[in-house]
Design a protein around this nucleic acid. Structure first.
Length: 199
DNA sequence: ACAGCGATTGACT
DNA sequence: GTCAATCGCTGTA
């Protein structure tokens, strides 16, 4: 049976809230991507929040541009950008329309479709399959083609409520790879999860 | 029109 | 630990 059929997308109201709240609550949710080779399902284990108004690290800090316009739009859409000439990063838009916000998915634990994910990543060691923003998009086959997809509908790419409710502790930490706004503790990850990029 | 650089990764010393 | 790869977006002109 296909993974996708048993999954229920999170409603728009889940994303249409404060970015920090959405970021924290995204931990443990399931990212589903239906590819031509089969479905991949992955648990979100690490995220970072980005807000436009008072966050110098955010793409939306200065003003609305062709790239970041999705951050100003409705919540619950995929905002994917290409960075360092090499990697794609997957974000989910948050907040009400007109207020810029997004949550960067930094790491996932692949639950279904592991073989497909391994094939998507050409590197040899599969230990570090999806413990980083650039790595997980490669493993799940996500690129600019998925930019702007509505993640609250049963599209090729969406975010689902987990089938089983798990208990876990959430750790709060500083964001990684940002020069400005490094003081903000806007990174959240599942404690003791081996797929987190940096403990 | 263009120079500078980034929400990273992997390879190498 | 250090550093190159690599390109589209952005600010400045």
């Amino acid at each position: 049976m296909k993974v996708k059929d048993s999954m229920k997308p999170l409603p728009r109201s889940f994303f249409n809230r404060d970015t920090l709240t959405v970021a924290k609550e995204l931990l443990g949710k399931i990212l589903v991507h239906q590819t031509r080779y089969g479905d991949i399902a992955a648990k979100i284990v690490e995220v970072e929040a980005y807000k436009g108004s008072d966050d110098p690290a955010s793409h939306a800090f200065r003003k609305k541009t062709p790239r970041n316009q999705l951050m100003f739009g409705k919540a619950g859409f995929a905002y994917i950008y290409f960075v360092y000439g090499n990697h794609h990063c997957l974000n989910v838009t948050t907040e009400k329309e007109g207020f810029a916000g997004a949550v960067l998915i930094r790491a996932v634990e692949i639950l279904e479709g592991l073989e497909i994910a391994k094939r998507n990543r050409v590197t040899k060691p599969n230990i570090n399959l999806s413990n980083g923003p650039g790595k997980l998009t490669k493993a799940l086959g996500i690129s600019n083609a998925q930019n702007g997809i509505d993640l609250t509908k049963r599209n090729k790419l969406f975010i689902s409520i987990p089938l089983k409710v798990e208990r876990f502790n959430t750790t709060i930490a500083g964001r990684i790879g940002v020069k400005q706004g490094a003081d903000k503790l806007w990174r959240f990850y599942i404690e003791n999860n081996e797929f987190v990029s940096k403990m």
